[in-house]
């Protein structure tokens, strides 16, 4: 069920401001692709074009093509709501629905999809929480508010919520940046397990994390503030970290940036 993403010549705008320019890349199915690059270079902006969340922002628009297998996400006949059910997303800050219980948080997406019947919901909720390595910690308090969990647990809850609807692709924007090292490791392990089923794209500022979890790494950069961010190169993670093709990549990774 994992799908390949093919982006060609993508420009991303906030009203008149071009935030990202000319991105062309392929994201392989059943693999983890990491986006790295300095702050403000457009990693999140670009990531959000992959499930059409970018256009939620007033003035947000996109030029170019994003193919999910052989479907162009930005084709005029494509419903953004359907795209987001296929391409799930986990945000930088854990954002469980605060008025919902743990159970309802995980079941929320299913209910949107019209899944009914307690038995079926129970099954999927358990499977998703297990998939997110959270089941053992919360199985006795499923009816408690999701906001009562620790930050790391909340983030895994959000992952469970995202995988409950069985998306083809999972996008993660700095999913560990608000977490302690132990929770971070738990999520990295989880990413390692999830990649057997999903296409995963993760934005991170943590070089070690990119090196640990990803198969491919994309380096973004921007010439100067106010200029659009660009994809500098994308390659096997091994190569990017040991023997990158572009000098700027090496400078960034080794901390000689700017």
């Amino acid at each position: 069920m994992a799908k390949r993403i093919d982006v060609s010549d993508l420009n991303v705008y906030y009203s008149a401001f071009k935030a990202v320019e000319g991105v062309t890349m392929t994201v392989e199915p059943r693999s983890v692709t990491a986006f790295i690059g300095p702050s403000g270079c457009g990693k999140s902006t670009f990531l959000r074009t992959l499930n059409r969340m970018h256009e939620v922002i007033p003035g947000g628009r996109v030029e170019g093509k994003v193919m999910l297998d052989d479907q162009d996400l930005y084709d005029s006949g494509v419903d953004p709501v359907a795209v987001r059910r296929t391409v799930g997303m986990v945000f930088q800050r854990p954002n469980p629905f605060p008025t919902m219980s743990i159970y309802d948080n995980v079941a929320a997406g299913l209910k949107l999809n019209g899944v009914k019947g307690k038995k079926r919901l129970d099954e999927v909720v358990e499977k998703s929480l297990q998939g997110a390595n959270l089941w053992n910690e919360v199985k006795d308090r499923l009816s408690k508010p999701g906001a009562g969990l620790s930050g790391g647990q909340q983030q895994r809850l959000c992952i469970a919520r995202a995988i409950a609807v069985e998306p083809q692709v999972l996008l993660m924007d700095e999913p560990c940046s608000a977490l302690d090292p132990i929770s971070t490791l738990a999520i990295e392990d989880l990413i390692g397990e999830l990649k057997s089923k999903y296409t995963i794209v993760i934005v991170t500022h943590n070089m070690q994390q990119a090196a640990r979890v990803s198969d491919r790494t994309a380096f973004f950069n921007l010439a100067a503030t106010g200029k659009p961010g660009k994809l500098i190169e994308i390659d096997d993670t091994q190569r990017i970290f040991n023997n990158p093709g572009v000098k700027a990549t090496e400078d960034y990774i080794s901390g000689r940036f700017g």
Partner: peptide, 14 residues
């Protein structure tokens, strides 16, 4: 909060 609204939209909510 924007995060709440985007959380719902990203799940495929209308």
């Amino acid at each position: 909060p924007i995060t709440h609204r985007e959380g719902a939209l990203a799940l495929g909510a209308t």
